[in-house]
Amino acid sequence: MTAHFINLLDELLRRSLRMASAVEHMLAEACDAAKRLDGAMAQRIIDRDRDVDEEEVAIETETLRLMTLFQPMGADMRQLCTILKVNSDLERIADCAVNIAQRVYHVAPGVMEELGDDLEDFYPAVRRMLQDVLHAYAKVDVAGAQAIRAQDAVIDALYGQFIQKAVIRAAGQAPEMLAAYMDVLSIAKNLERIADHATNIAEDVIYLGTGRIVRHSIP
């Protein structure tokens, strides 16, 4: 029975990692679509959201099934809890990518040109953070996860600076232009949210590796 459980747990983990890879890809494409204001690419991201939602439910169902049938303990239980929590964060990251894609349709090219350079600091930083945390998840790299937790403050600082700059620019504009600025702000906000979800995943990896819950503590 143990061998059977270990096989099922391995398969579930692989499935979770495949979903992680798909979500990472969605974020990369959302960044590219926003940079190039590529509507076709944005539509492809929006279309993929349903697959991610279905996969999230399937992974959750299988995780709960294994918990119920095998009543695992120790590291196995931590692994299942981590899969369940990461699953939820991955689905929300996909939602954020979809939100970014939806903004791509609305954003006024002129405003994007004005603020695009500042926004470009975000794309690689957030993408790298997600990439690193998913690597730490796959390898149960506790030290790596701790480093990623600390990165969240860097993203927050970037976001703060961007907001300040965008608000100053928007303040001088005619009221009908404000919606366009809000679109760009929304892209930044969603990137910042993705970094928060990546931080959650880092905290889950620390729990997975050590059994310690570090949420709400200073990294």
């Binding site: 470009e120 794309y123 690689p124 930083a125 790298r128 600390a150 990165q151 860097v154």
Partner: peptide
Amino acid sequence: MAVVSEKG
């Protein structure tokens, strides 16, 4: 600390 990729 690698916060951003080389490109950025």
